[in-house]
Design a protein around this nucleic acid. Sequence first.
DNA 1: CCATTATTTAACCAATAAGCTAATTAACTG
DNA 2: CAGTTAATTAGCTTATTGGTTAAATAATGG
Lengths: 112, 112
Amino acid sequence: MQTDTLSATFAALADPTRRAILARLSEGEASVSELAEPFSMSLPGISKHLKVLESAGLISRSRNAQWRPCKLETEPLKAVAGWLEGYRAMWEDRLDRLEAFLKLTDPNAREH
Amino acid sequence: MQTDTLSATFAALADPTRRAILARLSEGEASVSELAEPFSMSLPGISKHLKVLESAGLISRSRNAQWRPCKLETEPLKAVAGWLEGYRAMWEDRLDRLEAFLKLTDPNAREH
DNA sequence: CCATTATTTAACCAATAAGCTAATTAACTG
DNA sequence: CAGTTAATTAGCTTATTGGTTAAATAATGG
């Protein structure tokens, strides 16, 4: 994994299991075994995924007796959103042009 | 690389060289050697990165004589933005609470 | 202290990624 | 056709990833 945080974030997000874990955590904190429950994967497998998410800063872990509840952390997601903003104009611009095109080729428009 | 497109997109974005290439392409089309120029990497190395970007749908390639100009494609970025939207409320909510907190502890506010 | 539950660590494996150099393909140019 | 420029493919190496099972650690409860 690379050293910069954005790369670490994207790498962490590039796995459907990890994204599903984040989705689950967006509904509230959960223990490791709760998070593992929907998957056919072994518990150590989940544990590894959590480690990746944690080192990317996407989750934090506290402690409650023998449970280690995980919590979603949004900072890295904000960073991704910030990075994306640099490109948003590009696709919105394109959408504008598509709309213009549709208007030109719109049968209703042609009638006039 | 995984089969789902969102994973492929995130994986493609998880590399600073590839993100730099996209940034360059956001200013307009460019040939492979133009894209390679700012990097110390070998040309085949860049070629591989472009292949990753292309198979993630983040760029498309046309042909102009012996050049193969690359163009940024925004669909996958839109998909990422869409995915992110599911989490935006989370950090904006947090920001609201931070603002409330700052208001409470604001020296000016305390004077009254 | 012993057993149970929750989780992590260790050790391993197979597949993939990221880089290189050398060779090849493709297209233009004299 | 020969030479040059642009880019890709092949083949290799090394490191990382994503998964496994088995063993270890941590905390609770009787």
